[in-house]
Design a binder for these strands. Structure first.
Length: 232
DNA sequence: ACCCAGGGTCATA
DNA sequence: TATGACCATGGG
């Protein structure tokens, strides 16, 4: 059987198992602005979300949660505000560059007109925006049908035996997306949104004691994994 | 004290 | 092309 064939039911079944186990995640809900989502996507690079929340709160408290304000700040001022998110010198530069690009391109309304692929290429061309950050922004800020791949996703799907442990980012993304391509676009956006959040939720809860043990996380020792692996 | 987190870039071989 | 170093805070 060719790779990918007959995978949609399996992935959809896994999605159902995760949803029943962890419930709705409501990540980056519409009430938060799209710009805040983008800031969060950059600040959360290799960083716990609880730390990112402190940084975003600090930005909001100083009325600096806008691209105009951010590019107007001195490096040290911005770095100090986002200090709790870690890598503050690196991320201050990345935030500034991103905001400059964002304004240069005309802001959210203008960028919303861009096609999926063109927007993704443009995001990846911004210094400090890699594949996952770009896809976070595409999915959660621009509602584009992109399956976000992160360390949890690779661990999760490889331990289920669906992909190789060392599969590359684009290959894994293509795998996850191609298997669900027949679904209507708005449904895919909603599904990818919740799917990624649920994978992170299971990764945090089940992997907590020994994240890299290779035996927890939906392998044979995990009850959720047994459900997910069962034929649905 | 140690390990990890919703990564990405850059230098080196 | 493929590793390794580096960035840095806060929680378990």
């Amino acid at each position: 059987m060719a790779p990918g064939v007959n995978e949609p039911p399996r992935l959809l079944h896994i999605f159902g198992v995760l949803k029943r186990a962890f419930g709705p995640q409501h990540w980056w809900p519409a009430e938060d602005g799209a710009f805040e989502v983008m800031v969060g996507a950059i600040l959360t690079q290799n960083t716990a979300w609880s730390n990112v929340e402190r940084a975003i709160s600090a930005l909001r408290a100083q009325d600096c949660l806008s691209p105009e304000r951010i590019i107007s700040l001195e490096h040290d001022a911005l770095a100090n505000m986002i200090r709790p998110a870690g890598y503050f010198n690196v991320k201050a530069r990345r935030l500034s560059r991103f905001c400059q690009w964002y304004l240069d391109k005309g802001g959210y309304a203008a960028l919303s007109e861009w096609p999926d692929g063109g927007l993704r290429e443009a995001l990846l061309a911004v210094h400090g925006v890699g594949p996952e950050t770009a896809d976070d922004i595409l999915l959660y800020a621009f509602n584009r049908p992109v399956f976000v791949v992160d360390a949890y996703t690779r661990r999760f799907l490889s331990r289920l035996g669906l992909v190789a442990e060392d599969i590359g980012y684009e290959a894994l993304r293509a795998f996850a997306e191609s298997t669900l391509e027949t679904m209507p676009r708005p449904d895919r956006v909603a599904l990818y949104n919740e799917f990624h959040a649920l994978i992170v939720a299971q990764g945090k809860s089940i992997c907590r004691p020994k994240p890299r043990c290779g035996e927890c996380c939906l392998s044979r020792h995990c009850p959720v994994g047994q459900d997910a692996l069962a034929d649905g």
